[in-house]
C-alpha cells in the first residue's frame, strides 16, 4: 500500500518540477471528484447543488456573453485603485511612525483600535455618509489595505538592525540616504507581507461591499444570481474569486518575495 503511493508521489514531484502549472491544478482533482460524487449520489436537489459540468457551462456562457469579463474587470479595477491609494498613504505613514518614537507611542493604540473595526463594520455608516456608490467601496478597500501595510511597515522599520544604520552613518550616509538605502530595503520584506495580507483582506472586503453596494463586479454577480435563483452562477463567482487570488498571490506577490527578502536571506522559506 505504501510503495505504490510513494511511486505515485515520486512521479508527481517530477512532473510538477517539469510543469509547475500542474502543482496548481492537480490538488483540486480529488476535490472535484468528491464534488461530482456527492452530486451524482443525489443527496441534494440539483437546483441547490449543481455539478462541476453545470457550473463549467454556466461559466462559459457568462464568459461568452462578456458579463464575467466585464464584472471581473470592474472588481479588479476597484481593487487596484483602492490598493494603490491605500499603499500610497500607508507606506509613508508607516515609515514616519516607525522612525519617530513619539509618533509611534501616540499612534500605535489608535492604529490597533481602528484595525479592530473591521472593513465591513464601516459599511453601515459609510452608506449613510456616501450612499450606494463607488466612494463607499473605495473607502472600504483603502481602509482594509491601509492597516496591514501601516502596521507591517512600522514593524519592518523598527526591526532594521541598529548596526546597519550605524554602518551607514559611519560610511557617511545622510539621513535621507539612510532612509532610502537602509531603512526602506530593510523594511521591504515586512512591507510585502503587509501588502499580501492587505490585498487578501481587501479582495474579501471588496466582494462584501459589492454584494451590498454593487451595481457591477463579481460580488454583485453572485448576489444578483441569488435573486435569479441561479446557484451555478453563484458557484462560478466563488470559483473565480479563488482562482483570481491564487493568480495574484503566486504570480505577482510570491515572485516579488523571492526576488527580495528570500534572495537577501532576510526571510527563510
Amino acid at each position: 500500500m505504501i510503495a505504490p503511493l510513494q511511486l505515485l508521489w515520486g512521479y508527481y514531484m517530477r512532473w510538477t518540477v517539469r510543469w509547475p502549472a500542474l502543482a496548481a491544478f492537480v490538488p483540486f482533482l480529488p476535490l472535484i471528484a468528491l464534488w461530482s460524487l456527492i452530486v451524482s449520489l443525489g443527496v441534494f436537489p440539483r437546483a441547490f447543488l449543481p455539478g462541476p459540468l453545470d457550473v463549467l457551462s454556466k461559466g462559459w456562457a457568462l464568459l461568452y456573453k462578456g458579463i464575467l469579463t466585464d464584472y471581473l474587470a470592474d472588481s479588479l479595477a476597484r481593487l487596484a485603485v483602492g490598493a494603490a491609494a491605500g499603499m500610497a498613504i500607508a507606506i509613508p505613514l508607516g515609515v514616519f511612525i516607525g522612525l519617530n518614537r513619539r509618533a509611534y507611542e501616540i499612534s500605535w493604540p489608535i492604529l490597533l483600535f481602528f484595525q479592530a473595526i473591521g472593513d465591513i463594520a464601516w459599511l453601515p455608516i459609510l452608506l449613510v455618509w456616501f450612499g450606494f456608490g463607488l466612494t463607499t467601496m473605495t473607502f472600504v478597500i483603502v481602509y482594509t489595505v491601509l492597516f496591514p501595510v501601516v502596521l507591517n511597515t512600522v514593524l519592518g522599520i523598527r526591526t532594521v538592525k541598529p548596526e546597519l544604520r550605524r554602518a551607514a552613518q559611519s560610511l557617511g550616509a545622510s539621513r535621507t540616504r539612510i532612509l532610502f538605502e537602509v531603512m526602506l530595503p530593510g523594511a521591504l520584506p515586512n512591507i510585502i507581507t503587509g501588502l499580501r495580507n492587505g490585498l487578501g483582506y481587501g479582495w474579501r472586503a471588496l466582494i462584501a461591499a459589492e454584494i451590498i453596494v454593487g451595481t457591477s463586479g463579481i460580488g454583485f454577480l453572485m448576489f444578483d444570481a441569488r435573486r435569479a435563483g441561479s446557484v451555478e452562477e453563484i458557484v462560478v463567482g466563488m470559483i473565480v474569486l479563488g482562482v483570481l487570488w491564487y493568480i495574484v498571490d503566486s504570480w505577482l506577490l510570491a515572485p516579488i518575495e523571492r526576488a527580495t527578502g528570500q534572495r537577501w536571506g532576510l526571510v527563510t522559506t
Partner: peptide, 19 residues
C-alpha cells in the same frame, strides 16, 4: 561629534547590507 566617515567601523556582526 556623532558618527562620521572619518572613522570607519568594522562590526562583530559584519553589518553588511543584505540587499
Amino acid at each position: 561629534k556623532g558618527p562620521g566617515p572619518d572613522r570607519g567601523v568594522v562590526f562583530q556582526s559584519h553589518a553588511l547590507f543584505p540587499w
